[in-house]
Amino acid sequence: MTSPDAPHNRWSDLGRPPLNVTALRRGLLRPGALWTSLEVVESTGSTNSDLAGRAGALAEGAVLVAEEQTAGRGRLERTWTAPPRSGLFLSVYLEPSGVPMERWGWLPLLAGVAAATGLAKSAGVDMALKWPNDLLVTVAGAAGGPGEERKAGGILAERAGDGVVVGIGVNATLRADELPTPAAGSLGLAGAVSTDRETLLRAVLRSLEHWYGQWRAADGDAAGCGLQAAYAAGCATLDRSVRAELPGGKALIGEAVAIDGDGRLVLSTADGLQQPVSAGDIVHLRGAEGGLT
């Protein structure tokens, strides 16, 4: 029998056990490692907001993980909701001193590469990136139909004090009836061989430590450290017709042909011009005038 307070009990859903913070710290907080502290809270509004509010008192490498986010945020002020302990909800604080500030715009793309790489290895699913910072998986269609590309995670980077807070959200075990929108997906729905959150979290943070170290060592040169090529190789937006919904209500349609040295998406438009897009919402199209994918 379930007790009346079971929904508030951290062990009420045995299929989604709480994170073992002691084991996580033992595996990640090593001498000389990037990660300097790791805190797991049962519930919070937004891990990004929490870390940003403490930026002046944080050492680089602080990690905050929430078992549940009640006011999670994505790009363009979108909300991010998911049941407790159904995914990864975390933020990290980075201070890339020594890297020219004009190159800091690569941090959300770097986090995307790191998360996709870590999740692909630990969950055993193919991950793709939608520019600039969505994590995509392929979910099998009904009755064995063709797979459907869906968003299973996202990245949000925000300036805070002398550094940057990078938030990562990933749907791990969400079932079809729990998805916030039909366009959402999860690692479980994509056929993951493992959705153990401690394994996933360690893999993501180790991958992020690797890519961040490479990028800093190259003074933020994304081409020199291989980040630009890695992002392009994993980017599902390239070589597709897309619509860029730009700030101010404007839109641009073209073929996504490259990620340039500043991390911008380059579109080849019908008039033969190549237009770099630095900010906006990207919609994948079946054709230049076609429907959504």
Rank of each mutant, 00 (worst) to 15 (best):
R206F: 05
V242E: 09
D262Y: 12
L187Q: 06
R30L: 15
A233K: 13
G141I: 04
L94R: 00
V257G: 08
C225N: 06
L28F: 05
R54S: 07
G98L: 03
A116R: 09
R240K: 08
S241Q: 11
E209M: 12
K151N: 10
T173F: 02
A279K: 01
R175Q: 13
L135Y: 01
G213D: 10
G261W: 11
R286H: 13
E39W: 11
E148W: 06
E77P: 14
V139E: 08
V137Y: 10
R175P: 01
L90P: 05
V99L: 03
S268Q: 15
L14D: 13
P100N: 02
A232N: 01
A279P: 06
K151D: 00
Q214A: 15
P132F: 00
S12Q: 03
L28T: 05
L267F: 01
S49K: 11
Q69V: 10
L34V: 14
A152I: 04
T47Y: 04
A59E: 11
T237Q: 04
V92A: 03
D162M: 12
T36C: 12
L156E: 01
T44L: 15
V165D: 06
W35P: 01
L200K: 02
L38W: 01
G147E: 04
E68D: 14
A288R: 15
A6P: 08
W35V: 07
L267D: 09
G272N: 09
D262K: 14
G118N: 12
D271M: 06
P7Y: 10
A183K: 11
L189V: 01
R216V: 10
A115K: 07
L208G: 12
E209W: 13
V165F: 04
V170N: 00
T117Y: 08
V193I: 13
N133Q: 09
R85Y: 04
L14V: 14
Q214N: 10
T44S: 14
L246P: 12
E60W: 11
S278C: 10
R150D: 07
P180D: 08
R26Q: 15
G291P: 12
T79L: 10
V21M: 10
L135T: 05
W211Y: 07
N133P: 03
L238A: 09
A71P: 14
L201Y: 05
G15I: 06
G144E: 12
R202M: 14
L267V: 04
S207N: 08
A184L: 03
V193S: 15
G112L: 07
G169V: 01
G185P: 11
V92I: 09
G118W: 06
T269P: 08
I253R: 13
G254Q: 03
R54V: 01
L107K: 15
L174T: 02
V92E: 07
W11Y: 14
G161W: 04
A218T: 05
L24D: 05
A236L: 06
D239K: 03
A71Q: 11
L76R: 15
I155Q: 10
L136A: 04
R286N: 12
T79N: 06
G213F: 03
A62Q: 11
E42Y: 03
R16K: 13
G272V: 12
W11M: 08
V283H: 12
T36R: 15
G153A: 00
P180V: 11
V170D: 00
G290W: 00
M127E: 00
L156A: 01
E245A: 09
